[in-house]
Amino acid sequence: MLEFKKPQTLKDKPFHYCPGCGHGIVHRIIAEVVEELGIRERTVAVAPVGCAVVAYDYWDFDVTESAHGRALAVATGIKRCRPQLAVFTYQGDGDLASIGMAETLHCANRGENLTCIFINNACYGMTGGQMAPTTLIGQKTATTPQGRAPQKGEGYPLKVPELLANLKGVVYAERTSVDSPANIIKTKQAIKKAFLNQIEEKGFSLVEVLSQCPTVWGLSPVQAVRWVREVMVKEFPLGKIK
């Protein structure tokens, strides 16, 4: 009989995230992977600045905060000193791809034996929905009220795994989504692979997860899932990049 139960790696605490937000799903996926791999007692998470900063309220293993964008530098420090630990970062698009791009690129280029979970919701959620480096062209945000316009100098959606795939230090880069049960299963497989790569000391792995942010997008949870499926994936195609 299939029993649906909460993984031991999740605390008994309801998520504070908005209804329809993808963070809770990805938090749970990570918790399940850590449990299934039997690595809870040697897992250390590095939380970002953003909505997921309080991830330690939910994960039942060691967690540190990090300054905005610096998660992979912090993770480098932990992992180099204690290589037996399984260290991963959990970062949003503003954190990882804007303010923290130097840390991201160089950590990947050094081939640090780390796992990076990158949540792309095409906006800054916590600060009220400003333009992120991954905001789609034409997408309206608090700081692009007319829609993101490259011709106005607002740039193009940044494709992180494609960018990092060029680096020799990166062993694995994949983009997934959590808009359907099938894609949630694929995301779990990808995250598990990213952890296994670290356990097998292969090098730097990144999984980008397209995640819905109904509150900032101004959509219902159901519409938000549809927006990921119908609009976002056109700019950010799913699948293994490296």
């Binding site: 530098a73 912090v74 180099r80 160089h106």
Partner: peptide, 23 residues
């Protein structure tokens, strides 16, 4: 462990991580 970091910002944050790990 010695690391030449990509920036001063990264260096201090690596130190943050190392210190958090207890060394």
């Amino acid at each position: 462990i010695f690391i030449q970091a990509e920036s001063e910002i990264s260096a201090i944050n690596m130190v943050f991580g190392a210190s958090a790990s207890g060394v």
